[in-house]
Design a protein around this nucleic acid. Structure first.
Length: 197
DNA sequence: TGCAAACCATAAC
DNA sequence: GTTATGGTTTGCA
């Protein structure tokens, strides 16, 4: 039985699905209804769930993490995501995305080069990300550093990235099991979209 | 800039 | 099996 919770944190509604310390999905939106909908959309439909009011300890911790990420703070994310039911490639992309540090962005193509496949395939995984914003798909942008797309709306993607500025001035190569992931300072992106929001 | 073609894993049929 | 569909990229006019 999966437990589902919703919580309003500083004006934004978050939804969370978990069971036995494992996270099955997270989402956020401007209304409780929308957050719940997008969460349940990504949940395996054949698994029963119940919506609870008072959060478990695990739920409280996870809501805390969600808030931290949403506020652009550095959060240590060694979480227990229930990704085992996802296709292998999807899992690889998600894991690579989680390696992008706060303050940096990677392009769809750069992720693709690291894990295999093509840029559009990476975009597809992002579009279906059931763990936003814990899996920081907002840190994946186009090769020209403009934003690309975002499930929660581009304005939100922009706001998240703005809060993650850390003042880095050069890129970074991150060693993954599959290959190297090239990332760039988030400032590159903010500069590229200057004036658009 | 803008457009067309190549790209690649999924989901849907 | 096959097709349709993207949160893309690159090349070329």
């Amino acid at each position: 039985m999966i437990q589902v919770y919703t919580q309003n944190i500083k004006g934004t509604w978050f939804a969370l699905a978990c069971a036995e310390q494992r996270i099955y999905g997270t989402s956020f939106a401007e209304t409780e209804q929308k957050a719940l909908n997008s969460l349940l959309n990504n949940l395996p439909y054949n698994i029963p769930f119940q919506v609870l009011i008072s959060p478990s300890a695990c739920a409280r911790d996870t809501f805390g993490l969600l808030e931290a990420v949403f506020e652009g703070k550095d959060a240590n994310l060694n979480l227990n995501l229930a990704t085992d039911k996802l296709p292998a490639y999807t899992k690889r992309v998600i894991e690579a995305t989680m390696q992008i540090p706060v303050g940096y962005v990677a392009s769809y193509g750069s992720v693709a080069k690291a894990v295999g496949g093509g840029p559009r395939a990476v975009g597809n995984v992002m579009a279906g990300n059931a763990f936003a914003p814990l899996v920081p798909c907002h840190r994946v942008v186009k090769s020209d550093f403009t934003l690309g797309g975002y499930g929660g709306g581009l304005k939100v993607k922009y706001q998240l990235l703005s809060k993650e500025k850390r003042g880095y001035s050069s890129g970074l190569k991150i060693r993954l099991y599959e290959g190297d992931l090239q990332v760039y300072p988030v400032e590159y992106s903010l500069r590229a979209i200057e004036g658009l929001f």
